[in-house]
Design a protein around this nucleic acid. Structure first.
Lengths: 142, 142
DNA sequence: ATTAACTGTAATATTTATTATTACACTATG
DNA sequence: CATAGTGTAATAATAAATATTACAGTTAAT
């Protein structure tokens, strides 16, 4: 699975646990173990869709903008990874009935698969992810 | 999606349309637009699980070994791509509650997602794929 | 008003994953 | 015994993901 998706989940969960202050891309990137620029890229998508707010300058950062229950994993998937389930078929042989039609058939099947998966992902809101993270907590941030 | 999965589907569909003679990895690879060695690798998995038979030497090749209705896309997924939905999380910060627990939480969620997707994939047998390929046929092999 | 701490984003470099290629042992057929 | 195949490992090439660098813009604090 596309890691923009999981980074978005990670970031939102992080923000969910810091509801009262802004978090920086540096802080989130340390938590997630990736480069801060990547975090900013992912968060810029989430901001564009209104899930978070950001503020530039000293004391700035990112903060959740919605209720935790309003954001589910399907929303996040659609923003970060729509179509990611589709296989990248090489150009196959158009002179073979299989080669000529497989791409179209697979596209249809995987489109359905994505829709189907959506029903599963809709069952998880960030609230639920936060609860799962809290369940067996190993240690805490500062 | 893992392309071993789609190559396996492609190959099996190809074999399904040649039920009376053996097909070579060269033939399949031309249809699918990939290297014959890759086809042989994928088919070697399918053989190990009894979906196809193979024969070495002159006049050898691959041939379907089961009824088309007995093989569904979930079977093929499990053989070629089990776990492929799992994101590859970088090592995150164990001293942050999010970093310390996210991997486990995501693992659980994506495990469920894979199981869920399985129900969808079980609905497609190779027979159905063959039918879809035949539906809007552009042209035929030899 | 200047510095420091941020976001935003593009361009480039690096790393990793996928895929192709080569090589060759083995098997069967004619 | 030559030819047409599979089986599989090792390596090379390519493509994709990720990190890094660079820098413009914003805000707060001194």
């Amino acid at each position: 699975m596309n890691s923009d998706f999981t980074l978005a989940i990670h970031s939102l969960t992080y923000l969910a646990l810091q509801p009262d202050r802004m978090s920086t891309s540096d802080g989130i990137s340390e938590s997630a173990g990736v480069h801060p620029v990547r975090i900013r890229k992912v968060l810029s998508l989430l901001k564009k869709h209104g899930f978070i707010k950001s503020k530039e300058g000293t004391g700035g950062g990112f903060i959740f903008n919605l209720d935790l229950c309003e954001v589910n994993l399907w929303d996040i998937y659609m923003i970060t990874s729509e179509g990611a389930l589709q296989p990248k078929c090489p150009d196959s042989n158009e002179e073979c009935i299989v080669g000529a039609n497989m791409k179209r058939v697979l596209f249809t099947i995987f489109l359905g698969a994505e829709q189907y998966l959506g029903e599963y992902l809709k069952n998880y809101t960030i609230k639920e992810v936060v609860d799962l993270v809290n369940q067996e907590q190993n240690s805490g941030c500062d």
